[in-house]
Computed example of a mutant assay.
Amino acid sequence: MRLDNFDLRLLRIFMVIVESGGFSAAQAKLGMSQSAISCKMNDLETRLGMRLCQRGRSGFKLTAEGAQVYDETLRLLNQLGQYENKLGQIREQIFGHVRIGVVDTIVMNPACRLPASLREFSRKYPEVSVTLDVMESNEIEVLLLQGKLSIGLCSSDHEMPGLAYTHLFSERQRLYAAASHPVFQLAPPASRKKDLLPFAIAGRGKTGVTPLDEVDGFSMRAASAHMEGTAMLLLTGELIGYLPEHYAAHWVHSGELRCLNLSELDYFPAFNLTLPRYGHASQATQCMVEALMLNYPQASCMVAREQWPKTVDSSMLSG
Score class of each variant (00 low, 15 high):
138 N>A: 11
217 G>Y: 01
143 L>S: 06
88 G>V: 12
107 V>S: 09
184 F>T: 05
170 S>F: 08
107 V>C: 03
58 S>I: 07
50 M>Q: 14
287 C>M: 15
199 F>L: 05
253 H>D: 15
301 C>M: 11
123 R>S: 13
13 I>D: 05
185 Q>V: 00
118 L>Y: 02
316 M>S: 13
78 N>P: 00
94 I>W: 00
248 A>R: 02
308 W>I: 02
72 E>P: 01
117 S>D: 02
269 P>K: 03
57 R>H: 14
75 R>P: 00
303 V>Q: 11
262 L>K: 15
112 C>K: 09
9 R>H: 10
232 M>W: 02
114 L>N: 06
12 R>S: 13
108 M>F: 15
33 S>I: 05
165 Y>L: 04
1 M>Q: 10
41 M>E: 04
95 F>V: 04
18 V>R: 02
130 V>L: 15
292 L>Q: 06
67 A>G: 07
309 P>A: 09
291 A>C: 14
24 S>A: 10
297 P>Y: 09
307 Q>A: 08
91 R>D: 14
223 A>Q: 13
89 Q>E: 15
41 M>L: 11
231 A>G: 00
312 V>A: 13
16 V>H: 02
1 M>A: 14
292 L>R: 04
136 E>R: 14
1 M>Y: 10
160 M>Q: 15
318 S>Y: 03
59 G>S: 04
283 Q>D: 13
180 S>T: 15
167 H>Q: 10
79 Q>T: 12
251 W>D: 13
146 Q>R: 12
172 R>Y: 05
269 P>H: 06
278 Y>N: 10
100 I>P: 01
229 G>I: 03
165 Y>M: 05
187 A>C: 11
39 C>A: 11
56 G>L: 04
22 G>K: 08
104 D>A: 10
32 M>P: 02
176 Y>L: 07
152 G>I: 07
